[in-house]
Design a protein around this nucleic acid. Structure first.
Lengths: 154, 154
DNA sequence: CGATAATTGTTGGAACTCCACCAATATAAT
DNA sequence: ATTATATTGGTGGAGTTCCAACAATTATCG
């Protein structure tokens, strides 16, 4: 009988129930996006987290580290590392907050503002690459649906 | 004038251009899904990667580590760690492949098959929680759109 | 055949993230 | 006011992942 080809041990991998799981699909997409992002911005040594942090600080000067953690769903200890990295590159600065002496008010340095000007066009190109196979309406629906998965907008 | 409240230092964080970026939305969703998954299966010490690996091996007995890496978009060296973990828990077994002496043919042990029986219902519940705010059509469109982002189905 | 290139599993090192815990500070309760 | 509870930034340790390099094996090509 001429069923499955006996010669080649595995013509194709069976994904089982994985493709039906949203978590699997989201993760695969995230890996692909992460890879394109980091290679696109490799010259600047930027990751999505570092870039997102810069954007958030630009939009909210004097933001505190705990706010950053909540906004990006990161642990507070992770934010310490992230800000350390950006501070060593002289892109952000910590200042003791006047209204709460526990907190640091984080701001962009001049260099931080400048690098964002360079980065944003690259991120826009990256974004265009990611959604090139999606219609405008499809893209809108995608973002809306993703937003419904994490109602963590407390 | 009664503009922004002067008293509270930051009523709400401005997310800037982040919500418009697909990568940001996917990442936020992925974090939320990962958290729900791991807490749901905490008793079994299961992560999405470990579970996905078990499912793939079940659907493809004798699968090789390199195939696993390609299917899950993981580095080959990462798969070594993953299989090590599963092997130490006696859920999978490595066997030298007969057709290619470089490769390991990985199979589920009896315990591996049994734990999948326990795990699957929990994953199904998790899945239902994740998509509870999505219509059936909306969910279908979401998965389809995500699939268009990573055309890595070589 | 025989040389060259590609693939496989593995190791060692680095990056990123989380968790548990801590001292300092702020907020709430009594 | 005093006590008890929350929150904040931080440290140390662990888990997960990637990359670069390697020996063994297989595939390709002259």
């Amino acid at each position: 009988m001429a069923g499955t080809d006996r010669k080649s041990p595995r013509n194709r991998t069976d994904y089982g129930l994985l493709p039906g799981l949203l978590g699997y699909q989201v993760r695969q997409a995230q890996i692909a996006i992460f890879r394109d992002f980091t290679t696109s911005l490799a010259d600047h040594g930027m990751t999505p987290t570092l870039f997102g942090t810069l954007v958030l600080i630009e939009a909210n000067p004097g933001l505190k580290q705990a706010d950053l953690a909540r906004a990006l769903q990161l642990d507070r200890s992770t934010v310490v590392t992230v800000i350390d990295t950006l501070e060593h590159r002289d892109l952000v600065a910590r200042k003791r907050a006047v209204d709460d002496r526990r907190s640091n008010a984080v701001t962009l340095t001049r260099a931080g503002e400048r690098i964002l000007v360079e980065l944003k066009p690259l991120v826009t190109e990256h974004e265009a690459r990611m959604v090139r196979d999606l219609g405008a309406d499809e893209r809108t629906a995608l973002v809306a649906a993703l937003g419904k998965i994490f109602p963590d907008r407390r």
